[in-house]
Amino acid sequence: MTEAETSAVEAASRSKTDLVIVTGVSGGGRSTVARALENVGYYVVDNLPQALMVQMAELAHEAGGAARQTAMVLDVRSRAFSTDLAGAVKALRERGFAPRVVFVDADDDVLIRRFENVRRSHPLQGNGRLSDGIAAERELLAEARDLADVVIDTSHLNVNQLRSRVEELFAGEDALKLRVTVLSFGFKYGLPPDADFVLDARFLPNPFWVPELRDHTGRDSDVSRYVLGQRGAATFVETYARLINATAPGFEREGKRYLTVAVGCTGGKHRSVAIAEELARRLRELRVVASAQHRDLGRE
Rank of each mutant, 00 (worst) to 15 (best):
D75I: 09
A80N: 10
F81P: 08
S82I: 11
T83P: 00
A86M: 00
G87A: 07
G87N: 08
V89F: 07
E94D: 14
F97H: 02
A98K: 13
R100P: 01
R100M: 01
V104T: 04
D105Y: 09
A106G: 05
A106R: 05
A106T: 05
L111G: 06
L111D: 12
L111V: 10
R114G: 10
V118Q: 15
V118K: 14
V118P: 15
R119C: 01
H122M: 09
H122D: 06
L124T: 08
Q125P: 09
G128T: 02
L130K: 12
L130P: 15
D132C: 07
A136P: 05
R138P: 06
E139M: 01
E139A: 10
L140K: 14
L141E: 09
L141S: 08
A142H: 13
E143P: 10
E143Y: 00
E143S: 14
A144I: 05
D146H: 14
D149W: 11
V151H: 11
I152W: 13
D153W: 02
L157I: 10
N158F: 10
N158W: 08
N158M: 09
N160Q: 11
A171H: 09
G172H: 08
G172M: 12
D174C: 00
A175M: 00
A175S: 04
K177F: 04
R179T: 14
R179Y: 02
V180F: 03
L183V: 06
K188C: 03
Y189Q: 14
Y189V: 01
P193L: 13
D194T: 06
